[in-house]
């Protein structure tokens, strides 16, 4: 069995009196596509935000690649190898597609102010490498012909792809996608599915939050279900699909 890449240990988060996460524990193994599903307001995005350091959990914590993740330090999460996309796409709207991906290289590059001022050989080489890598990634998600367009002028589907490319630019071990198929039509969803599978084949573990149950069940190796902030089940899709509690969570109430 593959090693555990990310382990959530009794993660709890509440907003005022609302318990958004109730001691959620789950583990994501290296190399898998892991689905996190649940009805609206079940706590999926909250879980994401805790993991990527945007929220500070009120209890519990995360282990990532064998060491604890520091809470409240989003930039460190990225440095450790966790990259994410956002449910409501957050691109740098007035930067070009290429620049968006180039910024993504920030955490894996080093040039500082002095380098920028003096434009020494190392800085110039690094800058060229950043550009090259960004172009490659745009090609990888197949929007290379939109490289010089401002991010906000891209179509919805292309924006989703660009956000993934930007996340990949940080060289993540774990790529977290928050509802990447939202608002996509059948063809686009199919293309997205190919893209995600490709990324996994290239060695990146994927955590997928998704509403599209069909997509999740077809794509994921294992699936966890959240309901009212609590973990209902964590298992392979075939088992999850037949679980009575899951069916109730989706159909009941």
């Amino acid at each position: 069995m593959a090693e555990v890449l990310l382990a959530a240990k009794a993660v709890a988060k509440h907003f005022g009196g609302v318990k958004a996460l109730r001691d959620v524990s789950l583990s994501i193994r290296e190399g898998e596509i892991y689905g996190l599903i649940g009805p609206n307001g079940a706590g999926k995005t909250t879980f994401f935000n805790c993991m990527t350091g945007l929220y500070i959990p009120d209890g519990g914590g995360f282990d990532f690649a064998g060491a604890p993740l520091k809470a409240d330090a989003p930039h460190q999460a990225a440095e450790r190898g966790i990259a994410r996309t956002f449910q409501n796409i957050r691109l740098f709207a007035n930067m070009t597609a290429l620049e968006n991906v180039m910024v993504g290289r920030h955490v894996r590059t080093a040039a500082g102010v002095l380098g920028a001022m003096f434009q020494n050989r190392a800085t110039r080489a690094e800058e060229a490498a950043i550009r090259q890598r960004a172009e490659d990634l745009l090609h990888y998600v197949r929007i290379e012909d939109r490289a010089d367009d401002l991010a906000k002028n891209l179509s919805y589907g292309d924006q989703r792809r660009l956000e993934i490319a930007r996340a990949l630019a940080t060289e993540p071990k774990l790529l977290c996608l928050d509802e990447p198929a939202a608002g996509m039509n059948a063809t686009e969803t199919e293309e997205l599915r190919d893209l995600i599978e490709g990324i996994r084949r290239d060695g990146t573990t994927i955590l997928l939050i998704e509403h599209d149950v069909k997509l999740v069940m077809g794509l994921c190796d294992r699936v966890a279900v959240l309901d009212y902030g609590a973990l209902v089940i964590e298992d392979v899709p075939a088992v999850v699909q037949k679980d009575q509690r899951v069916i109730e969570a989706y159909l009941g109430a």
């Binding site: 989003p74 620049e99 910024v103 380098g115 940080t170």
Partner: peptide
């Protein structure tokens, strides 16, 4: 430069900037 792009990213969307490290 790398720094200049990072500044622009912060100006555009601070949360997204944090999320990419």
């Amino acid at each position: 430069s790398r720094i200049g792009r990072a500044w622009q990213a912060i100006r555009e969307d601070e949360i997204a900037a944090k999320a990419i490290g």
